[in-house]
Design a protein around this nucleic acid. Structure first.
Lengths: 112, 112
DNA sequence: ATTGAATGATCCATATATAGTCCATATGGT
DNA sequence: ACCATATGGACTATATATGGATCATTCAAT
């Protein structure tokens, strides 16, 4: 990040991540886990868990997903095997499609 | 991150993020956007978009969600207003619940 | 009411994610 | 086949997210 960047996020995504954080918080309480306990299980610090539960948009997606999974918050509504299967399907599908996006609007031949 | 950390991620989450990346890639191709164009629209670098499309788990969640939204990949199956509404509902619900998780198993009185 | 634990908030040091650049390769259109 | 360009990987510098510690506050159980 050479040049100091201030990102803008859409309201939808701010809400989405905030909601995800709240759902995690709710699920953690339901399961009677302290912040420290959940953080330990997820292999992250309590501070990071705090930021996740607050809906901080700059947390790494892997950490957020791990925490969510541990407390049972479903991200996509698919189980593990279905997820893997869907992943492979999508991967295969992509190999069949064009790999590059071509923008060069074909040069109009007006050289006559 | 003082102490060098090597995180472990569940297979489910690795697959989930990988899938998300592929879906983004697919949607980008469908919309005939080059990586640079999409990166510009999302306010991120092309390199970061590459990592996102590859399913890198250490990308910030805000950037991933922004890109997904731009190309039309739905994270949750709710529209904007429903999302905001749901967010508020969950927020309210949380205020009614206990705020701390108590672990101290009540000390058994055996002092007789 | 008391009290101990859980949480919120701040600060610092450092590991690292990111932006930006360059170059090599692959690819689709001609 | 040719060619213009999109993509994939490096690499570097720097902004910053994170871990860890500390302190204040708030709550729940007694």
């Amino acid at each position: 990040m050479p040049k100091s960047i201030t990102r803008t996020y859409s309201r939808y995504n701010r809400d989405a991540v905030a909601l995800l954080g709240l759902l995690i918080r709710e699920a953690r309480n339901e399961r009677k886990l302290t912040a420290q306990e959940l953080a330990d299980r997820a292999g992250i610090s309590r501070g990071l868990l705090q930021r996740i539960e607050k809906g901080n948009l700059k947390c790494e997606i892997g950490a957020v997903f791990e925490v969510a999974t541990i407390v049972g918050v479903k991200l996509f509504d698919v189980n593990e095997s279905a997820m893997t299967k869907y992943l492979h399907q999508t991967k295969e599908k992509l190999t069949l499609l064009p790999k590059y996006v071509r923008k060069k609007t074909k040069t109009v031949r007006d050289d006559f």
